[in-house]
Nucleic acid binder design. Structure first.
Lengths: 359, 359
DNA sequence: GCTAAAATTTGAATCGATCCAACAAAAATG
DNA sequence: CATTTTTGTTGGATCGATTCAAATTTTAGC
């Protein structure tokens, strides 16, 4: 029975209701936000008028300005929006963030933009109380942009030297060492590393300088972990090819091509993400190489898909869900402090690793 | 070089900058939103003052109220938030929605709540320009709640008789007929249906009354399609067990238990979603039954996971991405009209269907 | 040097609500 | 009946910006 006269007229405001019902706007407001303090008779009258005029209820836009708090957190990345629904790691992380938000009734706003100007604008204009940043590629710019907004934010991955930004990550060195030791103990001596980026623009084979001047210390730490452990087995880490990918299909396959084009191809691959590891398994199988018979692979992350591949993936599992939960909570109950948390990792041995082939 | 005196003081407003720089609000505002119309000298001075005072830039909360438009769409469901990242169908749909939003720079706000009160509140207070509704369980309530908000919205799945709500769905009858004909032509004569809900509370085996009084006409149409086609092959559809599940693991497995406990178990299963079909494949394999040797299965949806299962899933593919894109665009360029679109489906034969076993 | 045109700047109005001190009316108390 | 207490209502102030007509300053033209 809504008004039939709606037409293109401008929407009805609370003030219109107040006038029509013959009460002050204060009272009209109370009818909706604190109904218990207004006399029943008045309350019903106002509600009836609202109903009759087709009032949609107090507009959150107005309420917001007064209240100051949006009750939503922004999750931002430099990847396109679909990244949140495609990438296995992101999906698990989002599940964790969702849990924390569900628990407190907070909303989630997804923020992204491939190009820089739009990203800046989207970050500046997002209606949120704080941000969780997925620091993949272009992470440092993302942090800079977000900092300007002067809202609480937390970076996923301890990707930055910068001790002034809150961050949650894992013990990359320890995780990497576990992976490397496992392979070395299985007798492997020829390695290759599928690496994440050391800086914002992955370049293929990483030079020692690139590693030294890494922007992403997470990547650097994983590599350091691999190398430290392999050195202890007497392996010359200087000879190990380290290929920087963009953690997606194309560049990972390019990396594999490059690595296996070398004269002494590796018998073991250390991948810094499960995504790359799974792509590698696929690539190797298509090439007729047996995993783990010819080549062993260890991933990093512990995404669910890793358990379902053939063979299932040996990996260093991060507590992704828990990281997501904590990140969201850091924003939700923000207290102004900078927090940097390092979580432990878990080593999961599955089927993608085996003894080094003879000869 | 931000102010060291920030402390707990209330944030700096544009008006503070204006005063400090000795210009009017209007000019200060222009410096940020239309810098080209203010004299270079003034612009730089104001910017310098802003920088020096640690101004975070115009607060979107204030801008929003004036502008009226949020530039974001809400995607709502009655499932928990993690549904968006877990469910394969939802994920593909979100990818489509993301594409449309990315293209116009719009944001996405995820809205959900398991319990009714919170749902109502979340819908009422979401800062969005319109909604895309995932009408799974409790879809009719979701529509009612959203309608009260008087913002444009579109229901996914033509789940409602109600011709006054915009909706996008597929030709369920045609799709279902394709699936049924395929199986009948392969010689199958004993069927079972893994069904979606006909109303808000799935109940196990569906009675003809439940079907007749279906709230979700999409479910009803699929069933009608199956039955129409099977009848043409002389099959007595009255004897076909139709089990309503909640489209997740537990109830689907319960349905399979119930179906295969009958004296004449089916040789073919018509599943109304790929998710159920994939669960069924898993369940059957665990039971030692061969797919498609002993039992054939046809899904519905065409999610990517279906191509990767063993055996890969024969299914009726919806143009999910395209549906998502259109839904988002309907909100983004809303013109006040009610639109109801029906998309075609595509039949994809893969490995989960084969000739009926002999005997 | 004067006037018309163009470029800037101003300040009040507006967006849509909530909050709160002050006031009015009704009920309870002495 | 006068006074205090309780309960409800009012209207102005506020949240933080943008907009636009009018006022002012510059620049251009002669």
């Amino acid at each position: 029975m809504a008004s039939l006269l709606e037409g293109q007229a401008r929407p009805i405001r609370l003030a219109d209701i107040a006038k029509a019902a013959g009460v002050s706007h204060g009272t009209a407001s109370n009818v909706f936000s604190r109904p218990e303090i207004v006399r029943a008779e008045v309350r019903e009258r106002v509600k009836a008028v609202a109903e009759q005029m087709g009032y949609a209820g107090p507009d959150p836009k107005g309420r917001l300005l007064r209240a100051g708090k949006v009750n939503a957190i922004g999750v931002a990345t430099t990847e396109p929006l679909s990244y949140f629904f495609d990438d296995p790691f992101a999906r698990v992380m989002m599940a964790g963030i969702s849990q924390a938000c569900d628990a407190t009734g907070a909303g989630i706003a997804l923020v992204s933009a491939a190009n820089q100007e739009k990203l800046a604008w989207n970050i500046q204009s997002a209606l949120v109380d704080g941000f969780v940043l997925f620091c993949i590629e272009g992470g440092s710019r993302l942090v800079d942009l977000t900092r300007e907004r002067r809202l609480p934010f937390v970076a996923l991955e301890l990707g930055f030297q910068d001790e002034t930004v809150s961050a949650i990550g894992v013990d990359n060195v320890a995780g990497a060492r576990l992976a490397a030791r496992h392979l070395a103990e299985l007798g492997h001596r020829r390695f290759a590393v599928l690496s994440l980026g050391f800086a914002d623009n992955p370049t293929g084979f990483a030079t020692p300088e690139a590693v030294r001047s890494a922007v992403y210390t997470g990547t650097r730490d994983r590599l350091a972990g691999y190398f430290e452990e392999l050195s202890r087995f007497g392996i010359d880490t200087a000879k190990i090819p380290v290929y920087e990918t963009e953690n997606e299909d194309k560049s990972t396959r390019a990396g594999l091509e490059a690595i296996f084009a070398k004269e002494e191809p590796p018998t073991a691959i250390l991948a810094m993400s499960d995504r790359m590891a799974l792509i590698a398994i696929d690539w190797l199988k298509a090439r007729g190489l047996n995993v783990p018979g010819d080549v062993s692979i260890v991933g990093f992350d512990g995404v669910p898909d890793g358990a379902l591949s053939t063979p299932p993936l040996t990996t260093i599992a991060q507590p992704i869900i828990e990281i997501g939960r904590r990140a969201a909570r850091m924003i939700l109950d923000h207290d102004g402090a900078v927090r940097r948390e390092t979580m432990g990792v878990e080593f999961i041995v599955r089927g993608s690793t085996g003894p080094a082939p003879r000869g």
